[in-house]
Amino acid sequence: MFKLVIGDTAFDKFLEFNLNLRYDSVASDFSFTAWFDPSNEAHKRAFKPGDYQTAKVYYNDEILLTGTVLNMSFVSSAQNNALAISGYSHTGVLEDCQIPTSAYPLHSKGLDLKSITEKICAEFGINVIVDPSVSGRIGKVFKNATATNQQSAKQYITDMAAQQGIIVTHDANGNIILTECNTKATPLFDFTGGIPGIDFTLDFDGQKMHSDVTTLRQAKIGGRNTKKNPVVGQAKVSNPYCNVFRPRVARQQAGDEHDTGKAARTNLSEELKGIGIKGNLSTWNINGVFIKPNQIITLENPYLFLFKKTRFFIESVSYKLDTNGESCSINCYLPEVYNQDTPKNIFE
């Protein structure tokens, strides 16, 4: 069962509780509604607006999220005195804030991704962990890395990481993780043939797709294409899900000439998110395993135009607990969104 701890007060009774765990993101989030008793000192400590208290979410004593309480909505009426509260992981502040001036200069020439990320995250009291899967390439120095004062801290870090094929995610303890997906993992769930109580939808966004993606590198990364800043390199990748002429041209946002190919592949990965699987389940567990992001499932279902067993990566899971019981929805993408493999059309 879910348990929420705000400061020194634990709560396990809710009118409704929602938790959204994400993998390809710097933060997850939570929300709940409950009765508010203004004469209860524990309630007054936990729900005081503007305190930005630490919140921890547990499921059967396993910690799922360490975060911050952000928003409160109090109600006073003849019918109820309910309170709605929401928040996100400690790392979510990177989405809301620009790089603080105390971390200037914005130009990070000669630094690697780990150093850049640690420099920014330290300003917010956030630890950075490098997964062993990327330790061999995390030390590559950027020749030219400049943020803008309009960029969020998260946007700058993730843009830099994308040029090296590295994912910026977070863990249950509120740390930033530099990693890569284990898309070759053994599937934990096989939904071939359908399972009672589970509904799936497959969405294909053809407007998001392009026949090929050409990424241009200019002499000065981030500038306009002018005589003083000409295009000095390019890389092109093809999208197997678009067989008509729909070209796309993008600019490389960071890195050097060795990163242009990876930048093009990253742009293709964004297009591949136009193929998504969503599953609605009436449980949080299958065969005794708690469903979480960063897991592989397999699915074969002719009604979804999947005529052969196909692998999907669970990117996010949304859990809900209310008077009707527990339920969750999973959002999945093709593994090729998260690795450098050449994608093949799953519909052929």
Rank of each mutant, 00 (worst) to 15 (best):
A10C: 09
F14R: 08
F17C: 10
F17K: 06
N20I: 03
S25H: 08
A27N: 10
S28G: 12
T33N: 11
E41Y: 05
K44Y: 05
P49Y: 04
Q53L: 15
T54K: 14
K56E: 15
Y58L: 08
I63P: 13
L70V: 05
N71I: 07
V75A: 15
N81I: 00
N81G: 15
A84G: 14
A84R: 14
A84L: 08
Y88A: 14
G92P: 09
L94I: 02
D96A: 12
S102Q: 11
S102V: 10
A103P: 06
A103N: 07
G110V: 04
K114C: 07
S115M: 10
K119Y: 06
V130M: 03
P132Y: 01
S133I: 12
G136D: 14
K140V: 09
T146A: 11
T148P: 05
Q151D: 15
K154Y: 13
Q155R: 09
Q155G: 13
T158G: 01
Q163V: 05
V168R: 07
H170T: 03
A172E: 15
N173F: 10
I176A: 03
E180S: 14
A185L: 08
A185S: 13
P187L: 02
F191Q: 08
P196W: 02
I198E: 10
D199S: 14
T201C: 04
D203F: 03
D205V: 01
M209H: 12
H210L: 00
H210F: 01
V213C: 12
L216W: 10
L216D: 01
G223E: 11
G223H: 02
R224P: 08
T226Y: 06
N229H: 10
G233Y: 03
Q234I: 00
A235I: 01
K236F: 00
V237E: 09
N239H: 04
P240M: 06
P240A: 06
Y241T: 02
V244G: 02
F245E: 14
P247H: 00
R248G: 07
R248N: 11
V249T: 12
R251W: 06
Q252R: 06
Q253R: 12
Q253V: 13
G255I: 00
T260C: 13
K262T: 14
A264Y: 05
L268I: 05
E270C: 02
G274S: 02
I275V: 13
N280T: 15
N280F: 02
L281G: 09
S282R: 12
W284V: 09
I286Q: 13
V289Q: 14
I291S: 07
I291F: 04
T298P: 10
T298V: 12
L299E: 08
E300M: 15
L306V: 01
K308E: 14
K308L: 03
K309Q: 15
T310K: 03
E315F: 00
Y319C: 01
P335T: 01
P335M: 00
V337N: 05
Y338E: 07
Y338M: 07
D341M: 03
P343N: 04
I346M: 10
E348R: 13
